[in-house]
Simulated scan of single mutants.
Amino acid sequence: MLKLISFLIHGIQPFLVPICFVVAWTVIILIVLSLCAAAQDSLATAKQMHQIPCTGCQFFTDNYRLKCTVRPSIANTEEAIDCSDYQPKTNPYLY
């Protein structure tokens, strides 16, 4: 049995370096692709979140208990992107 294992190890040994090389670079490439996909997804989410107009609205209170006096359930969410009650702030001191 020991001779069989020794024979297998010596038979596989010339192929181990190229196999490990390919596996290592494959793992590195997969990690880089995963990081790129995560960054791309984060940018898409950030771009969508910047379309929410709540902070520039007259009815936005900037209070964590009542964020909006007209539609508090959708304040600062994706549903508020096309809010029909949006009114731009007219008082410059409210920003």
Score class of each variant (00 low, 15 high):
residue 1 M to R: 01
residue 3 K to I: 00
residue 4 L to D: 02
residue 6 S to F: 14
residue 7 F to L: 04
residue 7 F to P: 00
residue 8 L to C: 03
residue 8 L to T: 00
residue 9 I to W: 02
residue 10 H to L: 06
residue 10 H to M: 07
residue 11 G to P: 05
residue 11 G to V: 04
residue 11 G to R: 04
residue 14 P to E: 06
residue 16 L to H: 01
residue 20 C to T: 07
residue 20 C to Q: 08
residue 20 C to Y: 09
residue 21 F to Q: 08
residue 21 F to R: 06
residue 23 V to D: 07
residue 24 A to M: 15
residue 25 W to Y: 11
residue 27 V to C: 14
residue 28 I to F: 13
residue 31 I to L: 15
residue 31 I to P: 12
residue 32 V to E: 13
residue 32 V to Y: 13
residue 32 V to R: 10
residue 33 L to Q: 11
residue 35 L to C: 15
residue 35 L to I: 15
residue 35 L to Y: 15
residue 35 L to F: 14
residue 38 A to T: 15
residue 39 A to N: 15
residue 40 Q to K: 11
residue 40 Q to I: 11
residue 41 D to C: 13
residue 44 A to F: 15
residue 44 A to L: 15
residue 49 M to V: 09
residue 52 I to W: 12
residue 54 C to M: 09
residue 55 T to E: 10
residue 55 T to D: 11
residue 56 G to R: 07
residue 59 F to N: 08
residue 61 T to R: 07
residue 63 N to L: 03
residue 65 R to S: 07
residue 68 C to A: 01
residue 69 T to C: 00
residue 70 V to P: 00
residue 73 S to N: 09
residue 73 S to T: 07
residue 75 A to W: 06
residue 76 N to L: 11
residue 77 T to P: 05
residue 79 E to A: 14
residue 80 A to K: 00
residue 80 A to I: 00
residue 81 I to Y: 09
residue 81 I to H: 04
residue 82 D to L: 08
residue 83 C to A: 02
residue 83 C to Y: 03
residue 84 S to M: 05
residue 84 S to G: 06
residue 86 Y to E: 03
residue 86 Y to C: 03
residue 87 Q to N: 10
residue 89 K to R: 14
residue 90 T to N: 09
residue 91 N to F: 05
residue 93 Y to R: 03
residue 93 Y to Q: 07
residue 94 L to I: 04
residue 94 L to H: 13
residue 95 Y to F: 14
residue 95 Y to M: 08
